[in-house]
Design a protein around this nucleic acid. Structure first.
Lengths: 235, 235
DNA sequence: ATTTGTCAAGAGCAGTGCTCACAAACATGG
DNA sequence: CCATGTTTGTGAGCACTGCTCTTGACAAAT
């Protein structure tokens, strides 16, 4: 590796123009996504906004789904960024603070970009299968949570680790590979449940399922996430 | 009430034919929904399957959204049915059993009808606002859970009711109106969190978010729902 | 028997994703 | 500097969508 620049550094004017236009396409597509949602994302409309003909866009994205995939990856990355920067501002020893920062960071980002949130945690478009490129950015947020679990275990873990049945333990084989060995099964389950509650609460709020249920979602969210922190015994 | 028949009983042959055809449209629409998802639901394709011209369908449903609304209502009702019948087979005093029956009933229905599940708990179509007709069927499942909370409270409630802050209590005003007075705030919060974990776990499973995380989702789901029952102290 | 209301049909409009042949713009080897 | 080969934008076109409107046929009520 003698070159530290990105894999495809724009050398010629053409390559630079291509990179530029690709960015513009993605940007206006994201604008349309925010306005009309994934279902209303039209390649032709994007082309119109950019003053080009619709077929020209196909030189940059072979299909609408590929454009959507790009938006999904970007969304995962933006969410990961939001969670990471929020968590970075908290003392490493303050596990509860780190959890709360991630939770609030994720929610704030979701409220600011509801359509992009729905893109990654909402119902998948049928016939559309998430390409392998998405799993990297997708795991950024969960990695943060796993690190908290590991740090928690390093400082003594949970007080009453529940025993996990044999079959459940077997079912957890895949996630086991992504979590440090020292973290016991019980803690992984609590972590998964916390993650589910986090994603679930945000999704239900975004989908309006809390209408006529909770008035002040910020207050409720903070309360619930603090309770979760209690279940995880984050101090 | 001298007549127990539905509000618009088909009297003439025309009315009967209309009711029949409406049912056929909804049925084939539901078939298409299951196959291609909400985004792929095409009024023209439904009409083709029924051997009629597309414009004729508009005599029965003024727009595609109205057809979707009907499917949403039906989905809520079907889910409510599944949960209710599952819960009805358990002793009323067995609160844990009732909770587990509802949870498994909901999951089983969701796995059998993933597209319909996504229709009600997935990302909403932008520009589409759920009409008031949907709130009735929508609350059937939650009513079951509220009843369990009330029954739990009637037989002593939870052992260590946590105090809920003033602001959180205020935020819960709407849901308070739907829950018996005796049920304390703490129990309502636990119920909401349980509901969120239930919907969240099922949604994440349906959306494939547990891939490379959990192998045997049935096993994991049962374990988690039992833990939730423990949090609720359902015995 | 005639009016009234309902219905399916078909044409048509505006929009979509996507393909293809063609021509202009460009990068690069001789 | 010029010729070659690649890349890009163009515009026409196909098959599809939701939806509207007019037209002609039929049933129900009067």
């Amino acid at each position: 590796m003698t070159d530290a620049s990105p894999p495809t550094a724009p050398r010629t004017a053409r390559e630079r123009a291509r990179a530029e236009l690709t960015r513009e396409i993605v940007d206006t597509a994201r604008t349309h996504l925010a306005a009309d949602g994934a279902a209303g994302l039209s390649l032709r409309a994007v082309a119109r906004d950019l003053g080009m003909v619709s077929s020209a866009v196909y030189r940059y994205f072979p299909s609408r789904d590929d454009l959507l995939t790009r938006l999904i990856i970007d969304a995962y990355d933006a969410l990961g960024d939001a969670a990471e920067t929020a968590e970075a501002e908290v003392r490493r020893t303050d596990l509860r603070g780190r959890w709360m920062a991630i939770a609030h960071g994720a929610r704030d980002w979701a409220l600011a970009h509801p359509q992009e949130w729905s893109l990654i945690y909402g119902s998948p478009v049928p016939g559309y299968v998430a390409p392998a490129d998405t799993i990297g950015p997708a795991s950024r947020t969960t990695t943060l949570l796993i690190t908290i679990l590991a740090d928690l275990q390093a400082q003594g873990g949970v007080s009453d680790p529940q025993k996990v049945g044999r079959l459940v333990r077997a079912a957890m084989t895949p996630i086991r590979a992504a979590v440090p060995e020292q973290v016991p099964d019980d803690l992984i389950v609590r972590g998964l449940m916390a993650w589910t509650e986090l994603i679930g609460t945000i999704s239900l709020e975004i989908n309006g399922q809390f209408h006529n249920v909770i008035d002040d979602m910020s207050e409720y969210f903070d309360h619930v996430m603090n309770r979760i922190a209690g279940v995880l015994e984050l101090g």
